[in-house]
Design a protein around this nucleic acid. Structure first.
Lengths: 143, 143
DNA sequence: GCAAATTAAATTGTGTACAATATAATCAAG
DNA sequence: CTTGATTATATTGTACACAATTTAATTTGC
């Protein structure tokens, strides 16, 4: 095998970048049905779990900064899925809370993970190996 | 382990999406030195290898469409790294060719893969496993 | 108690990403 | 040879993504 380090096929980062985009693309038709983008979907996933959070905590969880989250959260607010309110105890914090409509959306989203799994052609063991390696890269070692 | 399929930590796609972004972020300071974005860098990588190509072929290689590539290639043209010219035999094709300046940039980029490898904390075997799994997801089985 | 440092969001600017559409060139069927 | 389909690129519109900066609120040192 060619070992030229500047060849696209010899890069590890490139298939990571490409696979990420390709998988997100597979979500698109499923997410269109519930009116979310992929980034909005993962944001809602945190809120389905946490019910409420401030912007920084959301960003740490999602690896996103306020420049991405602020407009995204405004769009989710416009859709009626979340509310945004300054915390009275510390006015620097904006508390994002899920609404009833947002909670209800979880039911419509329930089928998505399984539907998606069927379009990714890897075995459960491979998925687990991949999962661990990706979290290792993220520096968060999961099991 | 919690098996709720809508929990962020139980998703395979999320660490893929997050790790891709985090690794691209690690490239930033290295690529800033040579004045390229990550997407421009991988595009140049194809051109360092192929010398010239049309937009569609570049897009297939990079998993990008004309909506992304057209403005990106115009910026590379403005930087003097590539030229864009309609093919006379078939005016539908725009031939992207690397310039001398573009070729020269390869020398300055030569150190990047090694520098980057030192910031990703995985073993060579893990990297190989990851590489194969990612190309499996991309549907292109590599060795 | 108050100036300096820190923290949290928002804003600005640049650059992807991609769906959908438009435009133009070429090809194919008859 | 011409109409209809196909192909290649460009354009438009929406939504990230993030660095850098700004604004405002809070905390910390002295």
């Amino acid at each position: 095998m060619d070992t030229n380090p500047l060849k696209l096929e010899n890069q590890l980062c490139f298939p990571l970048y490409a696979a990420s985009k390709e998988v997100v693309k597979k979500y698109k038709p499923l997410l269109d049905d519930i009116g979310l983008t992929y980034t909005q979907y993962v944001t809602m996933m945190v809120l389905w779990e946490e019910k409420s959070s401030n912007v920084t905590a959301l960003g740490e969880r999602l690896f996103l900064d306020s420049g991405t989250l602020t407009p995204l959260l405004k769009r989710l607010e416009t859709s009626g899925l979340v509310t945004r309110k300054r915390e009275s105890a510390d006015e620097r914090n904006v508390i994002i809370s899920i609404t009833d409509k947002g909670l209800k959306l979880k039911e419509k989203a329930a089928c998505i993970p399984m539907k998606l799994a069927t379009c990714i052609d890897i075995t459960p063991e491979e998925a687990k190996t991949l999962y661990k390696l990706l979290y290792k890269i993220l520096g968060q070692e999961k099991n």
